[in-house]
Design a protein around this nucleic acid. Sequence first.
DNA 1: TAGATTGTTAATCGATTAACAATC
DNA 2: TAGATTGTTAATCGATTAACAATC
Lengths: 215, 215
Amino acid sequence: MLETVSEEPETETSNVPDIVVGRLPLYLRALSEMAMAGKLFTSSQELAAALGISSAQIRKDLSHFGEFGKQGTGYAVLELRDHLRQILQLDREWPVIVIGAGHIGSAVANYSGFAQRGFRVVAVFDNAPERIGTSIGAHRVKAMSELGAVIAQWRVQHAMLTVPAEFAQPVADQIIVAGIKAILNYAPTTLAVPPQVHVEYIDPVLHLQRMTYYL
Amino acid sequence: MLETVSEEPETETSNVPDIVVGRLPLYLRALSEMAMAGKLFTSSQELAAALGISSAQIRKDLSHFGEFGKQGTGYAVLELRDHLRQILQLDREWPVIVIGAGHIGSAVANYSGFAQRGFRVVAVFDNAPERIGTSIGAHRVKAMSELGAVIAQWRVQHAMLTVPAEFAQPVADQIIVAGIKAILNYAPTTLAVPPQVHVEYIDPVLHLQRMTYYL
DNA sequence: TAGATTGTTAATCGATTAACAATC
DNA sequence: TAGATTGTTAATCGATTAACAATC
């Protein structure tokens, strides 16, 4: 069977460095703030000052995705914000599930900041019988046995993991099998996952410990 | 007045890169886990596999602080753990305050993971009259006017900031004046602080947004 | 036009990795 | 001894920055 040779095989990974992608949400956050404040234009210098990084880095980062500015004028705030939303695929709402209905899970499920910035918590799960069926804000805690149905219903790809450290790996394995592709892990442990699954970590203690070195 | 010329003037900043210091708590976490599991020895290779980084990097990082291993044998788990605790100044307990008694502040104040790893929440503050005096776990929410007294009493240097984004900067200014030297900021905004103050950030939405790019 | 700021190039800077002698 | 693993060197890799022509 004959096939056209494409210049960018669809299996090739993007050539934008992860570290650059990692800064885009920071730019988006600053631009959203400016937009809310009614600001019409900004510059790489102004963004840099607000974020504590260099203006050259901002211009270089953006140049991976196109030309969004005008010489002498800078960037139109709303326009650049919307470009970043598109690049990050944040021009739509994404469903997220929370696994673990303890202290952290409850706080996370109730945090209004997710909805405001493109993510909607559609369900909270736990495997403790005494928690299943109880209310957490607007959510009723579901049993892990309902995981597959919920993921299928909402086409969920994101999960936040707020279970005790010793359960993080087995639970991660379980939700990956069920179709989750992006895990935000609040448990203080490193996860082993297949290459097509993305993991990010939140461990506040690590941050405190880092700063303590300098005191 | 004659003074001995010291080879390391006390004003000189350490020559260990921040990025290396940032990984030490990760190593400490892995070693503490191994210690709890009763493991006596480990190697840079084993640590690397557990953390998903290279063994060369672990050996290089540790070499900034001394020689902790033995050829052919690796590292004694308890010994290396204790060395890292010393290096990070985690061989003692540090008092921490929480500013903001909302959802996140409450979850943070109740999170047992801090005490287990060297940090004790000694007080929770808020400036809303209806919150002052209410209970959050074992804590009674204090007014911001008591900030100075509490910081002096416990010699607090660490604060976790869990106030709404628009108040983060003014509250940060306030606690810095009161003597805080390390801020863990949960508000989704960048803080401007004097150079002797350290800031680390936690914004779960940024992590979700980063992963969304790759979906 | 004069001033400001972009996008990009090339240089610099710093971090990671491979490799291996030393040695337990 | 043979096998394993360290600490360190040098090479590689990648990220950041300075500088500036282009141009709004």
